[in-house]
Design a binder for these strands. Structure first.
Lengths: 129, 129
DNA sequence: AGCGATCTACTACAGTCGTAGTACGACAGC
DNA sequence: GCTGTCGTACTACGACTGTAGTAGATCGCT
């Protein structure tokens, strides 16, 4: 079964998805107005992007009157999983720890945060929100 | 001055770079034979890839007789920095800690590793600022 | 000197991406 | 009912990628 071995999206595509992830089923117009606001994209551009994502199977499209409503078919976590794995595979020789080490070395996170994260995960464990 | 705000490379390009990073100045033939071995690429393909990287300014080319020798102009750490930052920016809303949390949640690293990494970095400390 | 092996340079081509215009159908207001 | 508006569908186009073939220069060997 299973889909989604390799869901890699561009920055822009992720921005689109982010809207769908946040609002669930969303009309082209709505997505377009957000993207227009955020980065001045023409709404035909957004429509094009969305149909492409649909053709790719990462979103589903449903018609409502003459509008199209889009809904994400992949979850954000799946995309994260896939893209992070790709990055680790290509840039860190598959070693996730090396990525964390890199983050600390580049001061993207403070060493203390590691402890904090660890605690948070250790106790709050049954996450799911 | 300054170069390198955004050095984003594809998986394949990284594979090429990896060779250059590992061996320093390397002839097309050498890179090509490695890539042929690793993923069956024709060596004209590799040559094309290398010239493209050169045009992009990420590697430098030097002629030795009729051969071309290539050398990386960007360091692996710079690419890591840039690509990891991009990923965090687009997929984790700029929150590096969220990336680490993701790694632990997806069991890409064990919680204990965080402590281990922290220790390693704490003592070997090369913190810069 | 000629021939084959090498190597680079140039060209090709399909696929994706970012970006958007144009064409056309439908709906709402006058 | 006609007209402007809104929305989708189709087309476009240049850049970049992955992939490689062909042409042409060269070098070494017999």
């Amino acid at each position: 079964m299973g889909e989604s071995p390799n869901i890699s999206l561009s920055e822009l595509q992720i921005a689109l998805m982010r809207v769908l992830w946040a609002r669930g089923e969303t009309s082209t117009a709505e997505v377009a107005s957000i993207m227009a606001q955020d980065r001045g994209l023409a709404h035909t551009t957004v429509a094009t992007l969305l149909t492409r994502l649909e053709k790719r199977g990462v979103v589903a499209q449903r018609r409502d009157g003459r509008q199209l409503l889009y809904r994400a078919l992949v979850e954000e976590s799946a995309v994260r999983r896939s893209m992070v794995a790709d990055l680790i595979g290509s840039l860190f020789s598959g070693d996730a720890n090396a990525l964390v080490a890199h983050l600390v070395e580049e001061s993207e996170i403070a060493p203390d945060d590691l402890a904090r994260i660890r605690h948070r995960l250790a106790q709050g464990d049954g996450d799911e929100r």
